[in-house]
Design a protein around this nucleic acid. Structure first.
Lengths: 296, 296
DNA sequence: TAAAAATACTCCATAGGTATTTTAT
DNA sequence: ATAAAATACCTATGGAGTATTTTTA
């Protein structure tokens, strides 16, 4: 079988002009090197060097083999060099999956610092709902997820980043609009607007509503948080808004809950077998909650 | 030290989706293969595969190493093939890929003379569409391609063999059936039948049709040229047929184009690094156009 | 006759084998 | 429960060593 070592030996012979000099350069004895050259020649069934000549001379065939041998050796060297540079974990491709109820609120402030801190990191973003993200993670199509940790995440390893409390969003002029704080049971009898199926936020809000005695408005299913907010602002009902999604709005009143505050936990998740786990943990700092709260 | 064997093992793992399957393919035991993988990982100081997963999953770093490993292995394979062909160029295995719109028309007449002229050549035939062939060539799974040179062939080296003009095929009794020659714009308004996606012939015919103002019949997609011809013969529409594929048919009329004649170029393609390039060129003579033209 | 390479042999490092345990589905 | 990979241990191939002979400039 052809070996890398054999190729190193024959290129050394060409480079140093002889078996002896080559053996010295390769830190082996001359007979050892000779044996390898012989073995390669036997394997290729081709004479590479003309024997019995003072300055070792490659045959015509040998020159062609030598040319290719150098190509192989540089490819191997490149591979080892690549391994070296890949050892810095926060470089290369990182496929990050983010849920739609987090992405627009956390990513804008996170990406620029992240890129600056780790310029070698090639970040690829995917926005999808929790179920799809978890499956993609398991299948090796994503490396890291940014989502709400309340959802079932399978065997993934996680890092909690911050709690994201829900606020009650009501239209200006609503009966509850003047309140400083609300309790979950204040929701009783309210028409609650929710997101489409598949959003983990929908399930979380639904859990709050159900044991508060509120009922979901059957006809409405918002496909995005923006739509949801606009529908509430137009007086169609009330909704639960995560604080990171809460932006000031003329027609909207956002009221925090009394304790116990219903909330979700934003965090990172990765395959528990991933070799970059520590690197992922260190990325958590970039995805902390935005500083400017919309309201007390 | 990195060895060729280690690179073979890790690419086998990727290819066969597991250590066990890979060890079988490499004719070694699983512990033997595992040990070599471990050794390579230790040497590179890099985890290449996530352990403890059913379908062995390469790490992000592993994928990059695997890409380079494949490059090294093809370079080595080329070197060994070079050695072989430096003795007798036209002997040993030659894996020939041919596109489906060429194979049935060119191979029958070519194979027998080829085998007679080069009995030491062990010819292996693969029929697939251009995209798959080009990828297989690049990856070192094929040695030589016989196809239409109009398609994107990457960095491959090529040899044009002959032009293959398109003929217009119409059903007997069609309005154009009596014409001695047609122009491209005669196609305007015709229902044109084409092959499935992926056939380069489809793209070439589509190019002719589009600037001639013809429209493709949406419901029909033939998976083979035989089907295509039968559909035209049954009056479903017209089509463009390469001349090498044109066989006399009772229900079909084949009309040549006036200049400029739309055509494809049949030729050979090989890796630009291939050591048998000269031998491949000499094979061109066996794949010239068939002598018996179906029509003027 | 000096150099460089080949030959003869010896040794030991390690690739690869068998048997078994551990781990993940 | 089953299948895959890791671990432990052993064997033997072959790479590399020393000593020596052969070769040709």
């Amino acid at each position: 079988m052809t070996t890398i070592r054999q190729l190193e030996y024959i290129t050394a012979i060409e480079e140093h002009g002889g078996f002896q000099a080559a053996s010295a350069a390769c830190h082996v004895t001359q007979p050892g090197l000779s044996a390898q050259v012989r073995q390669l020649e036997d394997h290729l069934e081709l004479q590479l060097f003309e024997r019995g000549r003072k300055p070792a001379l490659a045959t015509v065939e040998g020159l062609e083999i030598l040319r290719r041998a150098r190509g192989v050796l540089t490819a191997v060297a490149d591979l080892e060099e690549a391994a070296h540079s890949l050892r810095r974990p926060l470089s290369g491709r990182l496929r990050l999956g983010v849920i739609p109820t987090v992405a627009p609120f956390l990513l804008p402030g996170a990406l620029k610092p992240l890129r600056r801190a780790h310029p070698a990191l090639r970040l690829e973003l995917y926005e999808a709902q929790t179920g799809d993200l978890v499956e993609a993670l398991e299948r090796g199509r994503l490396d890291l997820l940014l989502l709400a940790l309340e959802a079932p995440l399978g065997p993934a390893e996680t890092l909690a980043l911050f709690p994201d409390p829900f606020l009650l969003a009501v239209p200006r002029g609503h009966a509850l609009a003047g309140r400083k704080r609300v309790r979950e049971r204040d929701l009783a009898g309210e028409d609650v607007l929710l997101l489409d199926d598949g959003h983990c936020l929908r399930d979380q809000a639904l859990a709050v509503c159900s044991h508060a005695g509120a009922h979901e408005l059957g006809d409405f299913r918002a496909s995005s948080m923006t739509t949801l907010v606009q529908m509430v602002a137009s007086g169609a009902g009330v909704t639960l808004l995560p604080r990171i999604a809460a932006a000031p709005d003329r027609d909207l009143v956002l009221i925090p809950f009394q304790r116990p505050v219903p909330q979700r936990t934003i965090g990172l998740a990765w395959r528990h077998t991933s070799p970059r786990a520590e690197a992922y943990r260190s990325l958590g700092a970039f995805f902390r909650a935005p500083v400017g709260r919309p309201r007390g």
